[in-house]
Design a protein around this nucleic acid. Structure first.
Length: 509
RNA sequence: GCCGCGUUGGUCAAGGGGUUAAGACGCCUCCCUUUCACGGAGGAAUCACGGGUUCGAAUCCCGUACGUGGUACCA
């Protein structure tokens, strides 16, 4: 292990989103590549947004993806606790330190007063007034109150927050691993709340304190954080020293059809945005996940990895091991990428095709059994999977493509044979049944040759008969080569299906 | 509004002064296959705009436009 440490810091407020998983993935790849430690920290400082089960759900998603952290609430290292709500006592001290150094102040404004400020100062040229250098001297805080008044308020435990005092006109710059040098003017950022009235830190204080205490060396997060980076830079400068600050990488956003991808987009356009199913406990609303949609975890992380990163070659299909080997932050794109579900499906199809039976076995079996299709013979199941996997894009496709090998079709697509059906053909199949009954070695060639011989004898075009035969055995116009199907389902079953279909066709056509 | 970030086909993207501007998804045509796929061969489709710099700009610089994120005691 090197001393490189990275972290993923989700807030447990709901389902784990595509972008979140990609952030985990980049953390994980970077960590493995640098023999680093990958930390998972739970950012649960907003008590009003606490959601039962969300934390465990995050772990379950990471486990499914195969991206498990080295240190976390479930696997504590020496930098715990890993849940911010359990670190509450730590943060106040740093807030006080900032105040004593003159970089922060107490503010006693109530939510109503803040609201009033915002409406009073609101204008066409300033639609969202900030608590900044212009207004802080008009508010109720330790900058405008006398020391005595302030002390008195504090002593009587009046609700208050700690706010950072943004400097007047200072250029704040840092070098982002993806964007390069980024500059801000301190006068355009407001006096962010650092410590809330309930004693919990806001994200701003918590990230820097925890990254410092947990010795994080590289911090990756979504680009939505870039605008608040100056606050964090300043905090590092005031509290722990810029020389100890982690290297930042602000990852490009994953976009939906219009704007930042949201779970609403998923519902609207019919694709998942969460890694796994998520049920909102309050509303009971279920949001579908990639896993339940039928994605392989290998495909899921693969498609996420190349949404914003590529290795410079033409390769698109990467195993986790290959990604670890080839990943580098400086080949991550700057611009956000629109999520394309069609391409996501393609990745899954590719992974299904290259997956071996042993990795597909239990997943497909589970799906079939849910449809009341029992599989007893493993070697037989393997042959079927190998035969049909190239026509399955999503795992549930196996139900249609493989199901009929193990269960006689309940309904036949009669319409498909209607135009081709007549007495001659019924006669043909009757005779064919008799013919194959005598085949002692039930092999592909024998079954097919019997068919060809009879076709030649009867002088019927084979194309007129192949489709009906398919519908007889399969139930519809799909599946692999028809004689291969016959070979696999066996002689008895083949004859049974033909005879059964004959009665149905004769009745309904 | 202000601030940040961005901009190569419909989408993901390679390319970072001289290229016929790769490749993939999707779409279309054809071949293979008497189903559907797989596989194979083709095709349509791109450097946001305007100024510079330069012998030469998709590539460098400046504007503009557009997109996107932020502008909470949410993360």
């Amino acid at each position: 292990m090197s001393n490189v440490r990275v972290r993923f810091a989700p807030s447990p407020t709901g389902g784990l989103h595509l972008g979140g998983v990609r952030t985990v993935l980049y953390n994980y790849l970077f960590a493995r590549k640098h023999q680093a430690t990958f930390v998972l920290r739970i950012e649960d400082t907003d008590q009003t947004r606490f959601v039962e089960g969300a934390e465990q759900y995050i772990f379950d998603c990471l486990k499914w993806c195969g991206l498990e952290p080295d240190e976390s609430t479930q696997k504590p290292g020496e930098y715990g606790p890993y849940r911010q709500s359990e670190r509450k006592d730590i943060y106040r001290k740093y807030g006080e330190e900032l105040i004593s150094k003159g970089f922060a102040y107490y503010a006693f404004d109530t939510p109503e007063e803040l609201e009033k400020m915002r409406s009073d100062f609101k204008s066409d040229t300033n639609p969202s007034p900030q608590y900044d250098g212009n207004v802080r001297y008009k508010m109720k805080n330790s900058l405008t109150l006398s020391k005595e008044e302030t002390d008195k308020l504090l002593a009587t435990k009046v609700k208050h927050v700690i706010r950072i005092k943004m400097p007047e006109h200072e250029t704040i710059s840092f070098t982002d691993m993806i964007h390069g040098e980024v500059n801000f003017d301190s006068s355009v950022v407001d006096d962010k709340v650092l410590l809330k009235a309930d004693g919990m830190p806001t994200y701003h204080l918590a990230v820097v304190v925890d990254d410092a205490l947990m010795k994080i060396t590289h911090a990756f997060r979504g680009e939505e954080w870039l605008s608040s980076a100056p606050v964090h830079i300043l905090l590092w400068k005031y509290l722990f020293g810029l020389e100890n600050m982690p290297q930042w990488a602000h990852l490009p956003l994953i976009m939906g059809p219009n704007g930042k991808l949201s779970k609403r987009d998923g519902a609207k356009y019919g694709f998942p945005v969460f890694a796994m199913n998520w049920t909102d406990h309050k509303t009971g609303e279920l949001t579908e996940g990639f896993r339940e949609k039928g994605f392989l975890p290998e495909a899921f992380i693969n498609l996420l990895a190349v949404l914003g990163w590529n290795d410079g070659s033409e390769q698109e299909i990467f195993s986790l091991e290959e990604m670890v080997e080839k990943f580098s932050m400086d080949r991550v794109h700057k611009a956000g990428a629109k999520f394309d579900f069609e391409k996501a499906r393609w990745f899954n199809h590719e992974w299904i095709k290259k997956s071996e039976f042993k990795s597909l076995n239990s997943k497909v079996r589970e799906l079939l059994e849910a449809e009341n299709i029992q599989i007893i013979d493993d070697p037989q199941f393997e042959k079927v999977i190998e035969l049909v996997k190239e026509r399955c894009t999503l795992l549930p496709d196996f139900v249609q493509q493989a199901g009929f090998f193990f269960k006689t079709p309940e309904t036949l697509d009669v319409d498909a044979v209607k135009s081709k059906w007549n007495v001659d053909k019924a006669g043909f199949f009757n005779e064919y049944c008799g013919l194959i009954k005598g085949i002692s070695d039930w092999k592909l060639d024998n079954i097919e040759n019997a068919f060809k011989d009879l076709v030649a004898e009867k002088n019927i075009r084979p194309g007129e008969l192949l489709l009906p035969l398919r519908v007889m055995l399969v139930g519809g116009k799909f599946g692999p080569a028809v004689f291969q199907i016959a070979e696999l389902i066996g002689k008895e079953e083949t004859i049974k299906r033909i005879k059964n279909a004959l009665t149905i066709f004769n009745q309904s056509i």
